[in-house]
């Protein structure tokens, strides 16, 4: 039995959770196991979505305490589901909750964990062998999980989501959280979401800019390019450090690591630390005045030129392309 953890965010099943259900279904095809999902405070439409992603059974947990996503509470709920279902493989997304809960569960269940898998595992006897990125994407490694209970968290945006017919059975699953002694009290929440923009970790298209833009006042064209493409904006580390852009936009080794389908880097030279955070991008476009900028060596498409000339032209080209599409 494979158990997959799913989560609701802003009224929808998280994209990363649907990916995790798809992933669990792929493993189920290999092993002949069945896929159960645990869903926290999900409504009928959300449960339907989880079913369409490939869960055959959904344990629907309704418990207000879990809405804080405190890792102690969530971990206890998942642990209870693991025990009830006799799950031997547990799947998470390698997202904020997955990074906090999967390792805790690993410690609690003495279950080997591969955190950040990028591919479907292969079966080798009683072990699962699964690939993940190491050295900040400079290499991959094949990990063997040898324990009886196994946990894999899937790097988001590793596979496109496929939804099919919903053939799931939903059962209400009551969890007992009274013995969990988390003392974390939430005092304040601050949203960094920008209306109409996909949050950076989930974005498929990203427009990013660096010091080459010379000042925060010049970001208008970056935002316009992003809007035209329906992309999310990002920035390099110096730009965040100089407070030209908010910290949550910083992508790179010490910022957010992303792997969108398209990463457009404007005025970013492509230092190894920056590249380490974006090297999982499927396609990279680099725009830089310096034809020797190292980023061109790691890019798929490049334009040498001044951002202040190129970006407006690129916006026009994208608009023209979009108009022709319609």
């Amino acid at each position: 039995m494979i158990l997959v953890y799913t989560e609701i965010n802003k009224g929808k099943v998280k994209k990363a959770s649907l990916e995790a259900v798809n992933y669990a279904a792929k493993i189920a095809e290999l092993t002949g196991a069945s896929v159960s999902a645990i869903a926290i405070n999900a409504d009928a439409a959300q449960l339907e979505e989880i079913g369409k992603a490939g869960a055959k059974k959904i344990l629907s947990v309704k418990n207000e305490k879990l809405s804080t996503l405190d890792s102690m509470l969530v971990s206890s709920a998942v642990e209870q589901a693991v025990k009830a279902e006799g799950a031997k493989t547990i799947i998470f997304s390698f997202d904020i909750t997955g990074k906090a809960v999967a390792p805790r569960l690993s410690a609690r269940l003495k279950a080997g964990l591969v955190a950040g898998a990028v591919d479907v595992p292969t079966i080798n006897g009683n072990s699962l062998e699964v690939k993940k990125n190491v050295f900040s994407g400079k290499a991959t490694a094949i990990y063997s999980i040898n324990s009886d209970v196994k946990i894999i968290s899937l790097l988001p945006n590793s596979f496109p989501i496929k939804l099919g017919e919903n053939s799931s059975t939903v059962i209400d699953f009551a969890v007992d959280l009274n013995s969990v002694n988390s003392k974390i009290i939430i005092k304040e929440k601050k949203s960094t979401d920008v209306a109409g923009m996909v949050p950076l970790p989930e974005a498929e298209l990203v427009v990013s800019a660096g010091r080459g833009l010379k000042g925060p006042e010049n970001w208008g064209m970056i935002e316009e390019l992003a809007k035209t493409l329906n992309a999310t904006t990002a920035c390099s580390r110096p730009v965040a450090d100089m407070h030209w852009r908010p910290h949550h936009e910083h992508v790179g080794q010490t910022g957010v690591a992303i792997r969108p389908n398209l990463y457009i880097a404007v005025g970013i030279s492509g230092a190894i630390q920056h590249f380490a955070g974006v090297n999982g991008s499927k396609t990279i476009v680099v725009i830089n005045t310096d034809k020797e900028a190292p980023f061109f060596k790691s890019a798929d498409y490049g334009i040498v030129g001044d951002a202040f000339t190129i970006v407006p032209k690129l916006i026009d080209a994208v608009k023209k392309f979009k108009a022709n599409q319609n």
Binding site: I142, V286, S298, D300
Partner: peptide, 16 residues
């Protein structure tokens, strides 16, 4: 509980 069996360097991108 886990061990690494092998490593592979990530392929660089072909020409830009």
């Amino acid at each position: 509980l886990t061990n690494i069996k092998s490593y592979t360097l990530s392929a660089g991108r072909t020409t830009c």
